[in-house]
Protein backbone atom coordinates (compact mmCIF):
# COMPACT_ATOMS: atom_id res chain seq x y z
CA UNK A 1 0.00 0.00 0.00
CA UNK A 2 1.38 3.41 -0.91
CA UNK A 3 2.07 5.95 1.80
CA UNK A 4 -0.73 8.16 0.50
CA UNK A 5 -3.31 5.38 0.55
CA UNK A 6 -2.29 4.09 3.96
CA UNK A 7 -2.45 7.63 5.32
CA UNK A 8 -6.03 7.94 4.13
CA UNK A 9 -6.95 4.52 5.54
CA UNK A 10 -5.44 5.46 8.92
CA UNK A 11 -7.39 8.72 9.09
CA UNK A 12 -10.53 6.94 7.94
CA UNK A 13 -10.22 4.32 10.72
CA UNK A 14 -9.63 6.96 13.41
CA UNK A 15 -12.50 9.11 12.11
CA UNK A 16 -14.80 6.11 11.99
CA UNK A 17 -14.17 5.09 15.61
CA UNK A 18 -14.47 8.74 16.65
CA UNK A 19 -17.74 9.08 14.73
CA UNK A 20 -19.17 6.00 16.49
CA UNK A 21 -18.21 7.61 19.81
CA UNK A 22 -20.39 10.61 19.00
CA UNK A 23 -23.06 8.41 17.38
CA UNK A 24 -23.85 6.30 20.45
CA UNK A 25 -24.97 9.39 22.38
CA UNK A 26 -26.57 11.10 19.35
CA UNK A 27 -28.63 7.95 18.66
CA UNK A 28 -30.15 8.45 22.10
CA UNK A 29 -30.75 12.13 21.35
CA UNK A 30 -27.75 13.70 23.10
CA UNK A 31 -25.56 15.91 20.93
CA UNK A 32 -21.93 16.04 22.00
CA UNK A 33 -20.05 19.01 20.57
CA UNK A 34 -17.03 18.32 22.77
CA UNK A 35 -15.83 15.16 21.03
CA UNK A 36 -12.31 16.52 20.59
CA UNK A 37 -12.01 16.82 24.37
CA UNK A 38 -12.73 13.10 24.89
CA UNK A 39 -10.41 12.17 22.04
CA UNK A 40 -7.68 14.38 23.51
CA UNK A 41 -8.00 12.62 26.87
CA UNK A 42 -7.43 9.25 25.20
CA UNK A 43 -4.57 10.56 23.06
CA UNK A 44 -2.78 12.28 25.93
CA UNK A 45 -3.30 9.37 28.33
CA UNK A 46 -1.70 7.02 25.81
CA UNK A 47 1.07 9.51 25.00
CA UNK A 48 1.91 10.15 28.62
CA UNK A 49 1.85 6.48 29.65
CA UNK A 50 3.99 5.63 26.64
CA UNK A 51 6.67 8.31 26.97
CA UNK A 52 6.78 8.84 30.72
CA UNK A 53 5.90 5.38 32.04
CA UNK A 54 7.41 3.56 29.02
CA UNK A 55 4.46 1.25 28.62
CA UNK A 56 3.81 -0.60 25.35
CA UNK A 57 0.81 0.29 23.18
CA UNK A 58 -1.14 -2.83 24.18
CA UNK A 59 -1.17 -1.52 27.76
CA UNK A 60 -1.53 2.22 27.09
CA UNK A 61 -4.52 1.84 24.77
CA UNK A 62 -6.76 -0.06 27.26
CA UNK A 63 -5.74 2.37 30.00
CA UNK A 64 -6.48 5.34 27.74
CA UNK A 65 -9.92 3.88 26.98
CA UNK A 66 -10.51 3.43 30.70
CA UNK A 67 -9.48 7.02 31.44
CA UNK A 68 -11.75 8.59 28.83
CA UNK A 69 -14.62 6.24 29.69
CA UNK A 70 -14.30 7.33 33.32
CA UNK A 71 -14.37 10.99 32.30
CA UNK A 72 -17.38 10.28 30.09
CA UNK A 73 -19.15 8.58 33.00
CA UNK A 74 -18.41 11.37 35.48
CA UNK A 75 -19.23 14.24 33.09
CA UNK A 76 -22.49 12.59 32.00
CA UNK A 77 -24.19 13.36 35.31
CA UNK A 78 -23.85 17.16 35.14
CA UNK A 79 -24.23 17.24 31.34
CA UNK A 80 -27.46 15.22 31.43
CA UNK A 81 -29.00 17.93 33.60
CA UNK A 82 -29.03 20.08 30.47
CA UNK A 83 -30.86 19.54 27.23
CA UNK A 84 -31.08 20.85 23.68
CA UNK A 85 -28.96 23.88 22.92
CA UNK A 86 -27.73 23.91 26.51
CA UNK A 87 -26.28 20.43 26.16
CA UNK A 88 -24.57 21.42 22.91
CA UNK A 89 -23.02 24.39 24.69
CA UNK A 90 -22.06 22.41 27.80
CA UNK A 91 -20.23 19.72 25.81
CA UNK A 92 -18.64 22.42 23.63
CA UNK A 93 -17.37 24.14 26.78
CA UNK A 94 -16.04 20.81 28.06
CA UNK A 95 -14.04 20.24 24.86
CA UNK A 96 -12.64 23.77 24.94
CA UNK A 97 -11.75 23.37 28.61
CA UNK A 98 -9.84 20.13 28.01
CA UNK A 99 -7.76 21.54 25.17
CA UNK A 100 -7.21 24.74 27.20
CA UNK A 101 -6.04 22.62 30.14
CA UNK A 102 -3.67 20.57 27.98
CA UNK A 103 -2.24 23.72 26.39
CA UNK A 104 -1.29 24.99 29.81
CA UNK A 105 -0.15 21.81 31.50
CA UNK A 106 3.64 21.30 31.61
CA UNK A 107 3.15 17.58 32.38
CA UNK A 108 1.64 17.10 28.94
CA UNK A 109 4.07 19.26 27.03
CA UNK A 110 1.88 22.36 26.93
CA UNK A 111 1.73 24.01 23.51
CA UNK A 112 4.77 22.05 22.32
CA UNK A 113 3.00 18.68 22.40
CA UNK A 114 4.34 15.23 23.16
CA UNK A 115 6.25 12.61 21.21
CA UNK A 116 4.74 9.12 21.53
CA UNK A 117 7.19 6.24 21.73
CA UNK A 118 5.47 3.03 20.62
CA UNK A 119 4.37 3.02 16.94
CA UNK A 120 1.42 0.97 15.73
CA UNK A 121 0.77 0.31 12.06
CA UNK A 122 -2.28 0.84 9.93
CA UNK A 123 -3.23 -2.85 10.20
CA UNK A 124 -4.01 -2.53 13.91
CA UNK A 125 -6.10 0.56 13.17
CA UNK A 126 -8.16 -1.33 10.61
CA UNK A 127 -8.76 -4.16 13.09
CA UNK A 128 -9.90 -1.72 15.78
CA UNK A 129 -12.20 0.08 13.34
CA UNK A 130 -13.79 -3.18 12.18
CA UNK A 131 -14.29 -4.40 15.76
CA UNK A 132 -15.83 -1.06 16.79
CA UNK A 133 -18.18 -1.09 13.80
CA UNK A 134 -19.32 -4.64 14.55
CA UNK A 135 -19.78 -3.77 18.21
CA UNK A 136 -22.03 -0.81 17.42
CA UNK A 137 -24.05 -2.81 14.86
CA UNK A 138 -24.49 -5.53 17.48
CA UNK A 139 -25.57 -2.93 20.05
CA UNK A 140 -28.08 -1.27 17.73
CA UNK A 141 -29.65 -4.63 16.81
CA UNK A 142 -30.26 -5.44 20.49
CA UNK A 143 -33.14 -4.45 22.74
CA UNK A 144 -30.81 -1.84 24.25
CA UNK A 145 -30.40 -0.40 20.75
CA UNK A 146 -34.18 -0.25 20.41
CA UNK A 147 -34.35 1.53 23.77
CA UNK A 148 -31.65 4.01 22.64
CA UNK A 149 -33.61 4.87 19.51
CA UNK A 150 -36.86 5.21 21.41
CA UNK A 151 -35.22 7.61 23.90
CA UNK A 152 -34.17 9.70 20.90
CA UNK A 153 -37.79 9.95 19.80
CA UNK A 154 -39.65 10.29 23.10
CA UNK A 155 -38.11 10.10 26.58
CA UNK A 156 -41.40 10.07 28.49
CA UNK A 157 -43.00 7.23 26.54
CA UNK A 158 -39.74 5.26 26.72
CA UNK A 159 -39.84 5.59 30.51
CA UNK A 160 -43.44 4.44 30.66
CA UNK A 161 -42.52 1.47 28.46
CA UNK A 162 -40.08 0.46 31.20
CA UNK A 163 -36.82 1.85 29.79
CA UNK A 164 -34.39 3.16 32.41
CA UNK A 165 -33.71 6.33 30.42
CA UNK A 166 -31.10 7.83 32.72
CA UNK A 167 -29.08 4.61 32.96
CA UNK A 168 -29.06 4.22 29.18
CA UNK A 169 -27.95 7.83 28.69
CA UNK A 170 -25.14 7.51 31.24
CA UNK A 171 -24.04 4.22 29.67
CA UNK A 172 -23.94 5.83 26.21
CA UNK A 173 -21.86 8.76 27.45
CA UNK A 174 -19.46 6.29 29.03
CA UNK A 175 -19.27 4.16 25.89
CA UNK A 176 -18.88 7.32 23.78
CA UNK A 177 -16.02 8.42 26.03
CA UNK A 178 -14.39 5.01 25.72
CA UNK A 179 -14.62 4.96 21.92
CA UNK A 180 -13.38 8.56 21.59
CA UNK A 181 -10.49 7.61 23.90
CA UNK A 182 -9.70 4.60 21.70
CA UNK A 183 -9.62 6.78 18.59
CA UNK A 184 -7.35 9.27 20.39
CA UNK A 185 -4.97 6.57 21.63
CA UNK A 186 -4.75 5.09 18.13
CA UNK A 187 -4.07 8.55 16.73
CA UNK A 188 -1.27 9.11 19.24
CA UNK A 189 0.44 5.78 18.58
CA UNK A 190 0.07 5.91 14.81
CA UNK A 191 1.21 9.49 14.24
CA UNK A 192 3.71 9.31 17.15
CA UNK A 193 2.93 12.88 18.16
CA UNK A 194 0.12 14.75 19.92
CA UNK A 195 -0.46 18.48 20.33
CA UNK A 196 -3.34 20.23 22.05
CA UNK A 197 -4.02 22.51 19.07
CA UNK A 198 -5.09 19.51 17.00
CA UNK A 199 -7.99 18.73 19.36
CA UNK A 200 -9.79 22.02 18.70
CA UNK A 201 -13.44 22.96 18.36
CA UNK A 202 -13.33 22.48 14.59
CA UNK A 203 -12.53 18.79 15.09
CA UNK A 204 -15.54 18.43 17.40
CA UNK A 205 -17.69 20.16 14.80
CA UNK A 206 -16.46 17.94 11.96
CA UNK A 207 -17.08 14.69 13.78
CA UNK A 208 -20.59 15.77 14.75
CA UNK A 209 -21.16 16.59 11.06
CA UNK A 210 -20.00 13.07 10.07
CA UNK A 211 -22.64 11.61 12.35
CA UNK A 212 -25.54 13.95 11.60
CA UNK A 213 -25.00 13.90 7.82
CA UNK A 214 -24.57 10.12 7.89
CA UNK A 215 -27.76 9.69 9.92
CA UNK A 216 -28.38 8.82 13.57
CA UNK A 217 -31.12 6.23 13.10
CA UNK A 218 -28.96 3.22 12.22
CA UNK A 219 -25.37 2.12 12.76
CA UNK A 220 -24.82 2.60 9.02
CA UNK A 221 -24.96 6.39 9.45
CA UNK A 222 -21.48 7.05 10.91
CA UNK A 223 -19.96 4.52 8.51
CA UNK A 224 -21.40 6.28 5.47
CA UNK A 225 -20.80 9.72 7.02
CA UNK A 226 -17.13 9.20 7.72
CA UNK A 227 -16.50 7.45 4.39
CA UNK A 228 -18.26 10.31 2.62
CA UNK A 229 -16.40 13.04 4.48
CA UNK A 230 -12.96 11.42 4.44
CA UNK A 231 -13.05 10.29 0.82
CA UNK A 232 -15.03 13.13 -0.79
CA UNK A 233 -12.23 15.72 -0.34
CA UNK A 234 -9.74 13.22 -1.77
CA UNK A 235 -11.94 12.46 -4.75
CA UNK A 236 -12.78 16.05 -5.49
CA UNK A 237 -10.58 17.39 -8.23
CA UNK A 238 -10.93 20.97 -7.05
CA UNK A 239 -8.16 22.06 -4.78
CA UNK A 240 -7.61 24.17 -1.69
CA UNK A 241 -10.40 26.32 -0.41
CA UNK A 242 -12.90 25.46 -3.16
CA UNK A 243 -13.01 21.99 -1.69
CA UNK A 244 -14.36 23.39 1.57
CA UNK A 245 -16.84 25.62 -0.21
CA UNK A 246 -18.23 22.56 -2.01
CA UNK A 247 -18.24 20.79 1.34
CA UNK A 248 -20.25 23.59 2.93
CA UNK A 249 -22.72 23.60 0.04
CA UNK A 250 -23.16 19.83 0.39
CA UNK A 251 -23.89 20.23 4.11
CA UNK A 252 -26.42 23.02 3.58
CA UNK A 253 -28.17 21.12 0.77
CA UNK A 254 -28.25 17.95 2.88
CA UNK A 255 -30.02 19.81 5.68
CA UNK A 256 -32.52 21.24 3.22
CA UNK A 257 -33.22 18.06 1.28
CA UNK A 258 -32.54 15.26 3.76
CA UNK A 259 -32.17 16.57 7.31
CA UNK A 260 -32.51 13.08 8.78
CA UNK A 261 -29.12 12.12 7.30
CA UNK A 262 -28.08 10.02 4.31
CA UNK A 263 -29.03 6.66 5.83
CA UNK A 264 -32.40 6.24 7.53
CA UNK A 265 -34.03 3.21 9.05
CA UNK A 266 -36.57 3.10 6.25
CA UNK A 267 -33.82 3.13 3.63
CA UNK A 268 -32.08 0.21 5.33
CA UNK A 269 -35.39 -1.67 5.54
CA UNK A 270 -36.02 -1.12 1.83
CA UNK A 271 -32.56 -2.35 0.90
CA UNK A 272 -32.66 -5.30 3.30
CA UNK A 273 -32.70 -8.79 1.69
CA UNK A 274 -35.92 -9.54 3.58
CA UNK A 275 -37.71 -7.06 1.38
CA UNK A 276 -36.19 -7.98 -1.97
CA UNK A 277 -39.18 -10.17 -2.69
CA UNK A 278 -42.74 -9.47 -1.58
CA UNK A 279 -42.79 -11.62 1.55
CA UNK A 280 -46.52 -12.21 1.62
CA UNK A 281 -49.78 -10.51 0.91
CA UNK A 282 -49.01 -8.23 3.82
CA UNK A 283 -46.44 -6.44 1.65
CA UNK A 284 -49.37 -4.53 0.21
CA UNK A 285 -48.44 -1.52 2.28
CA UNK A 286 -45.23 -0.31 0.74
CA UNK A 287 -42.28 0.53 2.91
CA UNK A 288 -42.07 4.22 2.42
CA UNK A 289 -39.01 6.33 2.86
CA UNK A 290 -40.72 9.28 4.46
CA UNK A 291 -38.83 11.63 6.71
Amino acid sequence: MSGYASGIVAILCINLIFAYAIFVTAAAGQLNLGGAGFQAIGAYAAAWLSSSAHMPANVTIPLAILASALVGFVISFPVLRTRGVYMVLATFAFGQFVSGFLLRSPTFGGAIGMVVADYIGVGALVICAVVTTLLVFFLMASRLGLAIRSIHDDELVSTIMGVNVRAVQVAMFTLGGALAGLSGALYAHHFSFVEAQYFNSLLSIYVLLFVLIGGTQTAWGPLVGSLFFTLLPELMRVGGSWRYVVFGVVIVLMMVLRPQGIVTRALVARLSPRNWWPASSRAATRVSDAG
Binding site: R143, A147, R149, D154, V157
Partner: peptide, 29 residues
Protein backbone atom coordinates in the same frame (compact mmCIF):
# COMPACT_ATOMS: atom_id res chain seq x y z
CA UNK B 1 -41.90 6.57 17.99
CA UNK B 2 -41.70 8.31 14.60
CA UNK B 3 -38.34 6.84 13.61
CA UNK B 4 -39.14 3.27 14.60
CA UNK B 5 -40.94 0.89 12.26
CA UNK B 6 -44.31 -0.64 13.10
CA UNK B 7 -42.76 -3.84 14.41
CA UNK B 8 -40.07 -1.97 16.39
CA UNK B 9 -42.72 0.18 18.05
CA UNK B 10 -44.60 -2.94 19.06
CA UNK B 11 -41.43 -4.68 20.24
CA UNK B 12 -40.66 -1.67 22.44
CA UNK B 13 -43.78 -2.68 24.34
CA UNK B 14 -42.01 -5.94 25.27
CA UNK B 15 -39.17 -4.06 26.98
CA UNK B 16 -40.53 -4.66 30.47
CA UNK B 17 -40.64 -8.42 29.83
CA UNK B 18 -36.99 -8.60 28.79
CA UNK B 19 -34.87 -9.58 31.74
CA UNK B 20 -31.17 -9.44 32.39
CA UNK B 21 -28.26 -8.20 30.33
CA UNK B 22 -28.53 -11.17 27.97
CA UNK B 23 -31.96 -10.06 26.78
CA UNK B 24 -30.85 -6.43 26.58
CA UNK B 25 -27.48 -6.76 24.92
CA UNK B 26 -27.84 -9.44 22.26
CA UNK B 27 -29.53 -8.82 18.91
CA UNK B 28 -33.28 -9.23 19.27
CA UNK B 29 -33.53 -11.57 16.29
Amino acid sequence: MPHLSVIENVMLGQHAKASGLGDLMTPIL
